[in-house]
Amino acid sequence: MLSKRIIPCLDVKDGRTVKGVNFVDLKDAGDPVELAWQYAQQGADELVFLDITATHERRGTTLEMVKAVARQLNIPFTIGGGITTIADAEALLNAGADKISINSAAVRNPVLIEDLAKAFGVQFVVVAVDTKLVEGRNMVHLNGGRLITELETEDWIIRAENLGAGEILLTSMDHDGTKNGFDCSLLDKVSKSINIPVIASGGAGKIAHFTEVFLETGVDAALAASVFHFGEIPIPLLKQELKKHNIPVRL
């Protein structure tokens, strides 16, 4: 049976891991390579690295980090942040990344999804979507939630699937950093409207939130950062709890 995946997310800045509460007030949570290795040992199913300060000048630092992680880690990992061209993606693939995640660049240039899928296969392309409720409508936001777009979240995700996205990483900006639980109603709607895997993100604060998101929605994976980095939720304990609720997990 296919397991539900638990994915720690490591925000990376200048080769170090940080985690922001609501994407501001960044705290240092350690060395990415060391953290990645620890997570694999604990039973993380995958990892996501988000390079939150990715700029052209800093690209080299990220590539070095990806190479170092790939040497140590034998579970899959995704890298996102600042990927705007096929060449960016190819460099990351060659450095050892299993998947790349694109967000703003896909909104600004949707054909990029298609081009990446053609060049590397749909399984390589994760489309990350930051969503926020505005006057009762879920709208796609950019720049870590600071910039609203004209795209309705559910429409954009269907379009991304049609363009060749292999997976959707959906972050609710209203829930992110609150530790009050995932946005189950939106996640359920989205996961039922498309035929590619969905990763739930934003709002995890306790084990019950993970149980809830897997029992109440059709998502395939759940992602969180600080609850894992600061040891608030140990992954083995989380997985044992999920198993008690008959949620398929890899122990």
Binding site: M1, L2, S3, D45, V122, N195, I196, P197, R250
Partner: peptide
């Protein structure tokens, strides 16, 4: 069962 494609993740 109309599974999602790609088949992605850990399976037994």
């Amino acid at each position: 069962q109309k599974p999602k494609v790609p088949h992605l993740g850990w399976n037994s």
